[in-house]
Simulated scan of single mutants.
Amino acid sequence: MRKQHVVLQTDFGLSDGAVSAMNGVALSVDSSLGVYNLTHEIPQHNIWEGSYRLFQTVNYWPEGTVFVSVVDPGVGTDRLSVVVKTANNQYIVTPDNGTLTHIKESVGIVEARVIDEQVNRLPNSGESYTFHGRDVYAYTGARLAAGVISYEQVGPSYEVDKLVALPLTKASYEDDVVTGNIDILDVRFGNLWTNIARDIFKEIGISYGDALEVTIENNRRHIYKNIIKFGRSFADSRLGEPILFVNSLDKIGVAINQGSFAKAYHIETGSNWKISIRKAKGIHYN
């Protein structure tokens, strides 16, 4: 029988026993489960980043994988706990608070169910209302992955269109200018990851070696403006120079060769962080 996978994501960090407890609950359901970490370093309460990291990862796991994502500032409130089935036949166990935004938009969600906590809750945990990651999500996810319950036994069906979604802005192109958002950081290296797909550059004839005028704004306040080369890799720029590149999700990124672009210019992420790109006329790098 093929080993089933449970993948955990939280904003808990690893400095205490919370994540270990979730692992233990999953393995207590079925010790043959493969329990893995996506990340536990989501900034505290940052639902947007939790949503993006799922999008960054989900497509690279086998069908049937169960993801448990717990970024839950509303724990103990009336927010719903759900399990969704993606278009690629995977499952995500999570609070319904916006964590599914990128999956719904980019992967597709075909079905949703509300967790019935009368059935799918760790035994003897009924008086605990602050650790649903252990008592509800890890327990339900493990039971689903192990085949202890079917998807239908998670709980009642829920309309996909009613799932909470965060505002998403699509990249656009008008009057020779590509406009998008800075969606996330490549945290360790300080690179900016935008929502501008490589296909947009192809459509408008931007090629490797082109010099591009890049402007970054936060709430319409100019933060950065410069001419940057569009390169295939960091080898196309000198040490300390900025470069535009295609990241691992086929989106346009902005970096400094062996430096942190985000730290250098104090750049953050989210709907208020806009980037615009246009060809710098008369300049092309070999």
Rank of each mutant, 00 (worst) to 15 (best):
G50L: 00
V66H: 01
F55Y: 08
D30M: 11
I47V: 14
L54T: 08
L33A: 10
F55K: 15
H45S: 09
N37Y: 07
S28V: 04
V70F: 03
V71D: 05
S51D: 02
D30S: 12
L33H: 00
V71C: 00
Y36H: 13
E49H: 04
P43W: 06
P73T: 06
R53C: 04
Y36I: 15
P43K: 05
P62G: 10
D30C: 10
Q56E: 10
L33E: 01
S32W: 07
F55S: 12
P43V: 04
T65I: 04
F55V: 12
V71W: 06
E41W: 09
S69F: 03
Q44M: 10
F67G: 01
R53A: 08
E63A: 14
Y36G: 05
Q44V: 14
N46W: 01
P62N: 06
S51T: 09
F67K: 01
P73L: 10
A26S: 08
W61S: 14
G34I: 15
V66E: 04
Q44R: 11
V58C: 00
L27F: 05
Q56N: 13
E63S: 11
S28G: 15
N59T: 11
S31E: 14
G50H: 11
L38Q: 09
V58W: 03
F55I: 07
P73C: 02
L54H: 08
S28D: 10
W61D: 02
L27V: 05
Y52G: 09
E63T: 14
S69W: 05
G64K: 08
F55Q: 07
H45D: 08
Y52F: 14
Y36V: 08
T65N: 04
T39D: 06
S51G: 15
L38D: 04
V68H: 02
H45G: 04
Y36L: 12
S51A: 15
G64D: 00
R53S: 15
W61I: 06
L27M: 02
I47Y: 08
